[in-house]
Amino acid sequence: MSDVKKIATRDGYGAGLKALGEEAPDVVVLDADLAGTTRTAVFRKAFPDRHFNCGIAEGNMVSVAAGLATMGLVPFVSSFAMFATGRAFEQIRNSVGYPHLNVKIGASHGGVSVGEDGASHQCCEDFAVMRVIPGMAVLCPSDEVEARKMVRAAYEWNGPVYMRFGRYATPVYHDESFSVRIGKGELLQDGRDIAIIATGIMVPEAMEAGKALAAAGIGARVINMASIKPLDEEMVIRAARECGRIVTVEEHSVIGGLGEAVCSALAESCPVPVRRVGIQDEFGRSGPAAELLRFYGLTAENIAAQARDMLGR
């Protein structure tokens, strides 16, 4: 995919906010001294009076956003995924989740592809802690186009939404006709031998794995599951029924994320073998993003190898 345009999903977030801001005067954006790197600075440049920097105080920022939401505004709050969902977890749970306030959390720097900053800044737990909050939608776009359009979808969704964006530039494969539908998966390649359900920047890797498997005569169904919660259970269960085996792929702990969400849905309706590709209950480390993704097996090669291992082919 070296000839494909590569853009980080966080850039889609910034561009999406700016586009939304032009049409929706009730949108305000909060950041915690990371506007440049979360890309909310793109919004700030266009709408300086609608961007509130809260300083390095994520807990206060989230509760302030809750207060703004009670006034009829639609706040988007941003930080790194680690601090947005870790430091401010209880504020999200109690100030936003419990009263079902219309706050959107846009977090950048998800996963190990943060790179050299290392484990303290590589959040692989955000899906888990956001999923468990009642009423919270949990989304992770697979490319810049989906990230950009997800901002509007989150705005139109009534209630709290968590969106995870990445720092690392990854392939853009959607065209402008694509539209985000919360609660729906996207079928990217059909197949009947095995299904690969991926989220975020793992989707382009899953697509590559799907092609490699096809070349080896294995029909892999490839699904982009940007909506981790609500999960497209219908699509997951159909994949289990029709393919019989599933590989889940996420740049997140195998505990509490997409893999477990898929397993939960299947265990109650259509149990089939599932292989969870992700971070295997460990912390990240420093290194270049591409090398880290390889180190943790978050590559097309490993996805294809896991699929073949499951099939014994």
């Binding site: 989230v62 509760s63 302030v64 207060g67 006034m71 504020q91 100030s95």
Partner: peptide, 8 residues
């Protein structure tokens, strides 16, 4: 904090 958000 929420009150500060309301005031803002």
């Amino acid at each position: 904090s929420a009150a500060a958000g309301m005031a803002k």
